[in-house]
Write a protein that binds this DNA or RNA. Structure first.
Lengths: 175, 175
DNA sequence: TAAGATTGATTTTTCAATCTTC
DNA sequence: GAAGATTGAAAAATCAATCTTA
């Protein structure tokens, strides 16, 4: 790992030292995130659900009224609006959620978790949490974990403040 | 945020307490990762390059001989083998890399960075590092950063040891 | 005119063969 | 038979309109 500097020494160094350290940091983050997602997808595959679809159901279940505006949901799962429209189409066809008109604003609509979607989530959640325990929590000590979560919060608030639960979404959920 | 427990209290609790804490941890990680990727894609879009394509060029440049076996590369950027075949097709058509036969094993082939690909990378790297500095490094103190990187390494080695540079890839690169 | 959501066309990715070499 | 890579068919995501309502 320490020989990376040598192999990229021919690439222009922009600001100062440790270009490779910064690239490595980003690399670690993306390897962890995609690796974890692969484990989650693997765990979810018997249920014929992708991690993105699971994420939609999970976020709905964790939102007031088990509902979210389409645009807010798209932002939270990092999908384009049209991408979310199609994903919600699929989940609606499967009966896991349904669309509901927004009374105040007739342009908008909610995605709302159905009883079927809720019980699917209940069935999958223990296994999902076990995956997180095994791959994310198990290798860390309690102190490391606390420091890690604190740092993640700082980063999240810096990078994606809108994704924080209780920001715009809750206000919009009031419609 | 603290009322999440209430909204999901009806969901089965698997192992112990703090189900929501674990879901929140995973949520933070994926929000940071996708948020960061969005910034990177935005930065790269004038160059007509996605972050995955950039990742391929970057990993080639950081590998001995600026080359990597197709299968190793696919694993590192978390793409299926066929997905990588097509992505390499595109980058080869654009002239940023080329395929080279593996002398020892005639089944295999290398993706090799071309001079054009190398200079594209050199042109893009300063801006890329600036994006990382702004969104990933700026909000953290030096001590936080060190602890954060240490934790990330632990997690990466646990979740995706194969993605670590210098594992299988270097051995295979010797061909 | 702009915002929320959807549709049509295209691109990107995957899954399931397939082909070649080990 | 298994591994490395590619191809065809299909799924999933995007961008650029489009439609409706604010």
């Amino acid at each position: 790992m320490d020989d990376l500097a040598a192999t990229t020494s021919d690439v222009t160094t922009p600001a100062g030292p440790a270009v490779d350290d910064r690239l490595t940091l980003m690399g670690l983050l993306s390897e962890i995130s995609t690796g974890l997602q692969a484990r989650i997808d693997e765990d979810l595959s018997p249920a014929r659900l992708t991690s993105t679809e699971f994420g939609v159901l999970l976020r709905l279940s964790r939102s007031p009224g088990e509902r979210l505006r389409m645009t807010d949901l798209a932002a939270q799962v990092n999908l384009s609006n049209s991408g979310l429209t199609r994903l919600v189409d699929r989940l609606e066809r499967a009966g896991h959620l349904h669309r509901e008109a927004c009374p105040n604003d007739r342009r908008g609509s909610f995605a709302v978790l159905t009883p079927k979607g809720r019980s699917l989530l209940q069935r999958l959640l223990p296994g999902h949490v076990a995956v997180l325990d095994r791959w994310l929590l198990a290798p860390l000590s309690a102190e490391d974990l606390d420091a890690f979560v604190a740092t993640l919060r700082v980063l999240r608030d810096h990078i994606a403040p809108d994704a924080a639960a209780g920001s715009a979404a809750d206000a919009a959920a009031a419609c």
